[in-house]
Nucleic acid binder design. Structure first.
Lengths: 119, 119
DNA sequence: TCGAACATTGACATCCATGTAAAGGTCAAA
DNA sequence: TTTGACCTTTACATGGATGTCAATGTTCGA
């Protein structure tokens, strides 16, 4: 599909789709006329990118993570590079930290709301 | 305490402490000579701000949340404004969404790492 | 064949969180 | 009294994600 359709289906502006490409997050084919040609599976990938960005994960990190977050739960290990593994562990641990923190804040908000309701 | 000490104790550069003030996140007193005078309790608050920023929560949101995330678990409901309540609920739900998303990505990474280890 | 809808690249603009520097005031200690 | 450490405000710079626009090419339907 072309960029406009992908933009419609994902809600991600064409500007951003080109940006993601520039950042190496997606690599559409090209039609003979130079138009980008997006494969069906990229719909899911773009949505995943959006959710990650919305969660505060920068494109650089997303780029590193993407090959591992395979859409289908296929978990195809292409390359058991120990350096890659270390990076992934590191990244996961950072995620875990953020999760704990956000949970704490979520709970604090909930407590506060509850306290409001009992007043 | 003055800005330098607070910076030392929190690891947050003075530049950022002034920025947080500009954004309405902290409001130090002033000494007669114009120096900022930070209360002891602001140490915790600054650390909290840092953690939130590191989790991708923008200053604007932090500003709204801060009065509710009281350092001491005191939960003093100053103002049972229904509009404030709605904003807090909304904010909490957004947090919850992010948490779920991050958990998913964390789990996906973990699965991938495990798969690497079994290869 | 012409116009509308859609592509392309490239550039410039903006917001946010930061770094950094300039020009100057305060204060304590040598 | 001067030096050095610390503070002030102001400003300009940067990097990342995004908006917007200009100039141009492609395709398709009236």
């Amino acid at each position: 599909m072309r960029i406009g359709e992908l933009a419609n289906r994902t809600g991600v502006p064409t500007r951003m789709l080109r940006y993601y490409e520039e950042q190496g997050l997606i690599t559409p084919l090209r039609l003979e006329n130079g138009y980008r040609d997006y494969d069906e599976y990229l719909v899911e990938r773009v949505l995943k990118i959006r959710r990650l960005l919305d969660s505060g994960v920068p494109t650089r990190i997303i780029r590193d993570m993407l090959p591992c977050l395979n859409d289908i739960g296929s978990t195809i290990v292409a390359d058991p590079d120990p350096e890659l593994r270390a990076m992934l562990v590191d990244q996961r641990d950072k995620l875990a930290e953020r999760i704990v923190l956000l949970q704490q804040n979520r709970d604090a908000l909930t407590r506060y709301i509850d306290a409001m309701d009992h007043a």
